[in-house]
């Protein structure tokens, strides 16, 4: 917790945040956002939150950027929505009110690094004292995560898996995300998504069911030039020239 380093990092964070919102090219905006997350991770490392810094660097600066870029490549690269002046006139007073309210509320918060702050005197003391004896785990964050507060973590894990499943539900078509290894190569009349009477037509299979979808192909990942001529069922999409 070197104050000068903190202040410099905060200034960089402010600059990257403003630029990420102002740049018209969305890929540049996402790069700036990844930089923002990386500097936030440095800030976390600077205040001894090593676990958080690790996750923020891997997720915020890494995977989030990849997901954003994937979405941008699937949509539009330029942010050409015209700025709406009326909307800004409504929004700016709202934000000023929000900041004023928060400034007022922050007067009741403890000073930075205050060891007598109420948050420091609660249950965390017990965790720090007992973790080694209870669980033989020196890293208190890990023992908190997976032992003392594991119900919390179970809920979070469910949220993650549910989020992934709902993303698949929104985007994937039936059978595109197989949940089980598919037979590879060759054509199989029984493996035809088109003439499968068993699968109810109204239910898209998104991978949540845990059983193999009989019509589920691993879809072709590159456009096949002769696709239109083979536009009938029974062609295994994995066959590629």
């Amino acid at each position: 917790m070197i104050v000068a380093l903190d202040v410099i990092l905060f200034l960089i964070l402010l600059a990257t945040a403003v630029l990420a919102l102002q740049v018209k090219d969305l890929l540049a905006a996402v790069s700036l956002l990844a930089g923002y997350s990386l500097f936030a991770a440095l800030l976390f490392a600077g205040v001894s939150a090593v676990d958080v810094a690790l996750v923020e660097a891997a997720l915020g600066a890494g995977v989030t950027g990849v997901l954003f870029i994937a979405a941008i490549l699937a949509t539009a690269r330029r942010s050409d929505a015209p700025s709406d002046r009326r909307r800004r006139l409504i929004v700016l007073p709202l934000i000023v009110a929000f900041v004023a309210l928060m400034l007022f509320a922050s007067t009741g918060l403890p000073d930075r690094g205050d060891p007598d702050a109420p948050a420091q005197l609660g249950v965390s003391q017990t965790y720090l004292t007992d973790s080694l004896a209870d669980t033989e785990t020196p890293n208190v964050v890990t023992s908190l995560l997976a032992d003392y507060r594991s119900l919390d973590t179970l809920g979070e894990t469910m949220v993650i898996v549910t989020a992934a499943l709902s993303a698949a539900l929104v985007l994937a078509r039936r059978g595109e995300i197989p949940v089980w290894p598919q037979r590879r190569g060759g054509t199989d009349p029984g493996d035809d998504g088109g003439t499968d009477p068993a699968a109810p037509a109204g239910t898209p299979v998104t991978g949540s069911s845990g059983t193999a979808d009989p019509g589920g192909h691993v879809t072709t990942s590159s456009p096949t030039p002769d696709a239109p001529t083979e536009a009938h069922g029974g062609t295994d999409p994995e066959e590629r020239p």
Binding site: V66, L67, A70, A74, A164, A168, L171, A172, E176, G207
Partner: peptide, 8 residues
């Protein structure tokens, strides 16, 4: 899975 779905 999220990555795969976004890059279908």
């Amino acid at each position: 899975m999220i990555f795969d779905v976004l890059t279908l």
